[in-house]
Simulated assay, not measured.
Amino acid sequence: MVLVFKTNVNSSSKVKRIAPKLNTLFPNSKWNFDLEDCDRILRFESENDIMKEIIFLMKILGFECEAL
Rank of each mutant, 00 (worst) to 15 (best):
L35Q: 07
E53W: 08
W31S: 04
S29R: 04
E64C: 10
D34T: 03
K14A: 14
D39V: 05
A67K: 15
S29V: 02
G62D: 05
L61T: 02
K52S: 08
K30N: 11
L61V: 02
I50T: 04
E66Q: 14
M58W: 00
V4C: 10
N10G: 12
M51I: 06
T24Y: 14
V9M: 08
K6P: 00
M1P: 08
F26K: 04
P20K: 08
I50S: 03
L68S: 09
S29H: 12
C38L: 07
V15W: 09
F5A: 01
V15M: 07
V15Q: 11
V15T: 12
K14Y: 13
N48T: 06
R17T: 07
T24M: 06
D39N: 15
E66N: 12
L3I: 13
N32G: 10
L68E: 02
K30S: 09
E66K: 13
I50Y: 01
V9C: 08
F5W: 02
W31D: 01
N48E: 13
I54Y: 02
E64H: 11
V15Y: 05
T24E: 15
P27N: 04
N48Y: 11
L25P: 00
F44Q: 01
F56I: 04
S12Y: 13
E64V: 09
M58H: 11
C38T: 10
F5N: 00
K6Y: 05
R17F: 12
V2Q: 11
I41F: 01
V9Q: 01
I50V: 06
C65T: 08
M58C: 02
K30V: 00
N10Q: 14
S12M: 15
M51F: 01
K16N: 13
K21F: 15
K59F: 03
S12H: 11
M1V: 14
D34H: 09
V2Y: 11
A67N: 12
P27V: 03
V9Y: 05
K30Y: 04
K16P: 01
E45H: 14
I41Q: 05
L57D: 02
N32R: 15
E45T: 14
I55F: 07
E66H: 09
R43D: 00
I55A: 09
E47I: 08
L25H: 04
N28W: 08
L22R: 06
V15L: 06
L3T: 00
W31F: 14
N32D: 07
N32Q: 10
N23K: 15
K6S: 09
T24N: 14
T7R: 12
F26V: 10
F33T: 07
E66S: 13
V2F: 14
F33W: 04
S46H: 02
N10H: 09
L42F: 07
G62L: 08
K52F: 08
F44M: 15
I50P: 05
G62T: 03
V2D: 11
K30P: 00
D49F: 11
K14N: 13
K6L: 03
A67T: 08
F5R: 03
D37W: 03
W31G: 04
E36G: 06
D34A: 10
S46Y: 06
S46I: 03
S11P: 13
K14T: 08
D37F: 09
C65G: 11
L3Q: 13
D34W: 00
P27A: 05
S13F: 12
F44E: 00
K30D: 09
L25K: 14
F63H: 15
K21D: 05
K59V: 03
L61Y: 12
F26N: 09
C38Q: 09
F63W: 12
T24R: 11
D39F: 12
K59Y: 06
